[in-house]
Write a protein that binds this DNA or RNA. Structure first.
Length: 276
DNA sequence: AAGGTGTCCTGTGTGC
DNA sequence: TGCACACAGGACACCT
């Protein structure tokens, strides 16, 4: 499912193939997929795509028409995909939004989402600014060490919950939280503020290593994630713990990966990731 | 205020 | 074989 690396892969492909294109037409299958700004949908016809950005797990298109600028935010949620024309989808009834375009390298961009945990937001600049402030904490790829240390130090909840807290650190979901914690040899239930400085540093380094490595491999194709051009993410093959309960820990410690009871779906090594 | 829990939503996997 | 049901989880409302 799309987390930061997958959203980044999506944004980079859009940046390469549809940046600068003009929207000819907008087709909306299900109006309730647009959470905000449905009444502005007509504005987007004839607008030019002037920017593609990622924030957390969302992809943001900047669009310009005459002297106006508006934004289209695609939350990918658990199962959302942005796809170019011709990429087959399994349940076509869940194609909710289609943009047809001129002047780019792709004639069409589609938003597909069977579970509808992701939505579309159509916003002006003040709306975008409010949205960004409300929804997203720091970006784990660009946050400074000082800021990261401060954020971790003031949180009294569980470490895994902190990693996945979008308003604190934006972009890490369940899969990457599991992979990060294993590589940093930290227990998911460790109290964040009680981590020793050297362990916070290890976490800080591992977060960036894992996410950049995942982006380099095109993300993880768990539960049918594919990039806009239809290609799979290969980082799935490098997963060490996610969905691997019962398998030997890849560190060679001799323990087996376990599911952590009382948590949604945490996978960890009870030997390598001890609470103390 | 921060942290925890329940709900939404629907395809998939499991078990009878 | 077919059906029922638990499960998956990001965001958000709500509660403490």
């Amino acid at each position: 499912m799309p987390e930061l690396p997958e959203a980044e892969v999506v944004a980079r492909q859009l940046g390469a193939r549809v940046l600068g294109a003009t929207i000819k037409d907008v087709w909306l299958g299900r109006p309730d997929i647009v959470r905000q700004g449905l009444d502005t949908l007509d504005w987007y016809r004839g607008a030019a795509i002037t920017g593609i950005d990622r924030r957390g797990k969302s992809v943001i298109l900047s669009l310009a028409k005459a002297s106006d600028t508006r934004y289209l935010i695609a939350e990918l949620g658990m199962t959302g995909l942005l796809l170019f024309q011709g990429v087959p989808v399994r349940h076509p009834q869940h194609l909710h939004l289609m943009l047809t375009m001129d002047g780019g390298q792709e004639p069409e961009l589609r938003y597909w989402n069977p579970r509808r945990f992701g939505r579309i937001h159509l916003l002006d600049k003040p709306g975008l600014d409010r949205f960004l402030v409300k929804r997203f904490g720091c970006d784990p790829l660009t946050v400074s060490w000082e800021e990261f240390r401060r954020l971790v130090g003031r949180r009294r909840g569980r470490l895994k919950a902190l990693l996945m807290h979008q308003q604190v650190i934006a972009g890490i979901g369940n899969i990457y939280a599991n992979e990060i914690l294993h590589r940093a040899r930290l227990h998911p239930h460790h109290t964040a503020s009680r981590l020793k400085s050297e362990r916070v540093r290890r976490l800080f380094d591992v977060v960036r290593e894992v996410l950049t490595d995942a982006i380099r491999h095109g993300g993880s194709s768990v539960r049918d994630f594919i990039a806009p051009d239809g290609t799979q993410g290969l980082f799935t093959r490098r997963h060490l713990v996610y969905n691997k309960a019962g398998r030997p820990c890849p560190s060679g410690c001799g323990s087996r990966i376990r599911r952590l009871p009382g948590d949604r779906t945490s996978f960890y090594c009870p030997f390598c990731q001890r609470l103390r």
